[in-house]
Design a protein around this nucleic acid. Sequence first.
DNA 1: TTTTGAGTTGTTCGA
DNA 2: GTCGAACAACTCAAA
Length: 461
Amino acid sequence: MTDHVPLHGALGGDEVIPLFVLDPNHVSETGAHDHPHRVQFALESLHALEANLAHLGSRLVIVAGKSTELLPKLAAQWKVDRVLAQRTAEPAGRERDRKVRELLHVPLTLTEGETLQPPETIRTQSDTPFLVYSAFARAFATASSIDPPLAAPKRLPPLPPDVTTPSSAIPTLESLGVVRNERVIVGGEKAARQRLQRFVERAARQYHVQRDRMDLEGTSRLSADLRFGTLSPRTVWTTVQRALSDAAPEALRVFHNELTWREFTHATLWDRPELLHEPFQRAWVGFPWQHDDALWQAWIEGRTGYPIVDAACRQLMIEGFVHNRARMISASFLTKHLLCDYRRGEAHYLRFLVDGDRAQNNAGWQWSAGCGCDAQPYFRVFNPVTQGQRFDPNGDYVRRFVPELAQLPNKWIHAPWTAPEAVLKQAGVPLGTGYPRPIVDHKAARERFLALATQHVKQKG
DNA sequence: TTTTGAGTTGTTCGA
DNA sequence: GTCGAACAACTCAAA
């Protein structure tokens, strides 16, 4: 309830009806099957919200159906004088909001809050959207002072007596055919605040040196909270800023930089909704991605033979989360080593990530594939072995998600195929049966991709 | 209008 | 092991 801009805006009136519309596209058996981890997190967050509102003297009214049909109907029935909601940069949400506004007979106020600044406000001097990150970040830093978050209300007005619509119950996971996953982070504002607190106490001060370490808890793990609004970006920005006021400035600078990237991805998607279907760099339209179902299956199941890639792919399925660097390595591998269309990987991540944020996910995948916003061109091809050695130096991340390699000594943990037979035998890792050999050779795959990319981009340019 | 400096996260090779 | 250069030009954004 902290920093909830629509609720805060609505408190200016005498009566407030907190309403949540359960969209059957998202919360149904099919919808839940499409994104099980996110549904679990969302339902828990909804329960927490319901309890929170009740505690403050109000009630959450839950209705199931399409916003475009329900909102005009309910607004008329309840004789409300306005409707408030938070706007989103996500294209389908924008389209929904546009239709709702058209159909409502009262004003629809779309408030800010998804991002620190409204997505269309950070512009170049010639009033065009920024196309490179660093220029955006400079403009963001000078243009914006970040307002402190709005405090949670102490008390809410009770529901008006004529709101007699029976509230739907929040569906159970079982009713949606989803088995609860204990490894997925807990939803709700309270759990979110605990995560933020934990980050501030344990990791924030070392953020600049440990954020890339896949084996440590060096990151904030707040991506899902930012996606669902269980924490507002302002809350995260200012809380970490306050906590690091006496720390080395580098830690805060690097953390704020990550939040600024989030601003950039949302502003960019706001400006170019078609990015969900097309590459950022137009020269990449029509790139000859290849479709090999055997390679695809090996990647999604974590059987590529490259431990760090396999760990990342398995973490996604196990936790609904992947460490940022592991996302990059695994995305780079799928697109550049296996030549799979980044959109296929993007959809897979969107399906299973708790934090499935279209703006962030798309920008990340495009960057990894080489067709996104990046100063460095396509010839950066991550080496899955050296990346593992640098950012998972003891192999702990690999061992956590690829247990069949648990007994393999550190020296070979990121390249089991280079280990002597005796070592493999001792570790109980029969290559080819216990753990796969690499499905592609790194050097050959790298050269193949570079040749293909060079050829294609030249042709286009 | 032209010029200028700069561009998230890397890899490989050879000295 | 460590370090610097090459990778390849091009576009963006501001002066």
